[in-house]
Each structure stands twice: as C-alpha cells, then as structure tokens.
Design a protein around this nucleic acid. Structure first.
Lengths: 147, 147
DNA sequence: CACCATGTAATTTTAATAATAACATCTATA
DNA sequence: TATAGATGTTATTATTAAAATTACATGGTG
C-alpha cells in the first residue's frame, strides 16, 4: 500500500492553523499548502475534533485548538488520527496448525509492544509548540515575526 | 497498501531455523510454518545473507547463523530486510510553492528522527536469543526440551 | 435567496507488499 | 552421469491500505 502520511499532514494542518492565528482558515486554503483536496483535510480535522484537540463550526471556517500548543503532544495527535495502529505489524496469517508459528508471533508481539512504548514515550515529549518553534528556525523567520 | 510483515516473518524464520538446530530446514518447510510460499522465504533469506546474518549454500538446505543468537539484534534484522525504511513517513508531496509547507515537513522530519532513534535503540537491546527465550515461555516448553 | 463553508459517506485511484510463476544453477545420490 | 530436489533471482500478478475524488446534506452569512 501507500505509506500513511496522515500524521505528517495533520501536524502540517495544525501548524498552519496556529500560524494563521486570527485569520480564518478554510479547508481549501489548508489543502493548497498540503497539496491535497479539501475533503481529506476535513476528514483529518474531523478526527482531531473527535479526539478533542480542536473545535470547529459547521458552515464557517472557524477551527481552533481546544488548548495551548504546548499542551498538545505528538502522541495526542497520533492517537486522534491513527488510533491504536502500531508502527510494526505482526503476521497474523501464520499457520495455526503450527504451534511454533503462533507462539513465535505472540512472543514477537510482546517485543513490538516495548518498541511501541519507546516510540510513544518520545512522541509524548514532543509538543505542537516544539514543532512550531522548530519550524520557525528551519524557515529562518525573524524573531520579530514570530507569534 | 498492505502492512509490511517482513520483520515478523524474518524473525519467525530465524527462530524456526534455530529451533531446528541440526535438522536441515528447506525454504518449503519454513514457508509451511509462516504460511507463505518458499520463494518469499528465500527472498528474506537472501536479504539476511546480504546483511551478513546467515550463510547458506546453493543447491542444499544448509542455512545457519553467522554468529550466536545473542549477538543478533532486532535492529540488525530490521536493517537487513527493511534497510533505511523509517517507521513514520513524511509527506513529500506538499506544495513546493508554499514555503510554509516545505519547512514544516523539514521540521517534522527532525522529530521523526528522534522517534526513530528511540525505537531503534530499543530494537538494539532485543536479541534473537531474547525472542527465542520468550517463545519458550509462551509455548510453555519445559526447560528440559530447550536448547 | 445565494453563496460558501463544514461534515460525512461512498467510490475510485494509487502504491507498497505478498503471492506466485518461471527458470538458471548447484548438490547429492542412485 | 543422469536425475531429483534444493537454492538464488527476476518478473509478473494479486492484494490491500491509503489518498484522492465525488457527491451531497447541512449550516452560516450577507
């Protein structure tokens, strides 16, 4: 399949929203930057809304964070849009006739869990504010123009 | 796309190989346990060979680890079969006209790198021996029957 | 009312992976 | 030496998760 870029696109969306503070961002405007279509952006925003990270109103462009950017972690975003989807995937099609196969996959699953936990711990340490700050540096936006 | 189960299948393959110490495992036998086809197994083994983790001879079933199971980490296996493929994927299709889009993705990339490092550090701590031991526990193989 | 926005479901297209097929080459053995 | 069976490798097809797209109901604003 394609690789999922949902997390990247959602972070992009959120940063864009923050940078345009005041200015009302439509899904069409955001889609232009992400180079995708408005419906996809709205789907991501819908997931963010379900996850309690943003509010938005039907009929008008009025999305906003429900809390400060430093209170939103990358893990919060990941959970909102990818749910419980893991980074590594077990093979659940092994031969059930083969006891070895089944138990090896179960054993692998426990180690995958550890790796997932390590990754999620790091995700939890990264806030939307951190990403915005780092974006400012990358883009070399002068301090005076930052929010 | 489909989710990649290459890592899971390759670990499966290696454990299977270790458990059958002595007995010569053909790609057909292994494929039966993983419930796939022999050519796929040979492809995985080919990658392991390129990565220097196993040896094998053309014409006869004779695969073997190049070093002890405790000297092979999950990261070694991941590198051999997935190369530099990351766990999280950036969106490289953002609008190049939009400086914001490009720089946000660059900023995201740096944080993804941190997450990748955390996951790889954990992978490096897990050896093939650990997985085999844990399999023995899962399968409740009596100590007397373990290798 | 007219226009433009969101919200959402359904469908189509794209792309990474596993599955499969085909075959050259090597080994062991009868 | 001939044959059976194994690996090594490439090419093709099928599968499947994701993004793209379409469609439209619904709500807000001038």
């Amino acid at each position: 399949m394609k690789y999922s870029t949902k997390l990247s696109d959602t972070i992009h969306l959120l940063v864009f929203l923050c940078l345009a503070a005041g200015e009302r961002m439509t899904s069409a405007r955001i889609a232009e930057s992400v180079k995708t279509n408005p419906a996809y952006i709205r789907q991501l925003m819908s997931a963010l809304k379900r996850g309690g990270l943003i509010t938005s109103d039907r009929g008008q462009a009025n999305a906003a964070l429900t809390r400060d950017a430093e209170q939103i972690t990358m893990l919060d975003i990941y959970r909102a849009i990818e749910g419980k989807k893991p980074l590594l995937h077990m093979d659940i099609h092994t031969n059930p006739e083969c006891g070895v196969g089944v138990n090896i996959q179960l054993a692998i699953g426990d180690f995958y869990r550890e790796i997932q936990d390590a990754a999620e711990k790091k995700m939890q340490e990264i806030t939307l504010r951190d990403i915005i700050e780092h974006y400012y540096e990358k883009a070399e936006i002068p301090e005076s123009q930052r929010l």
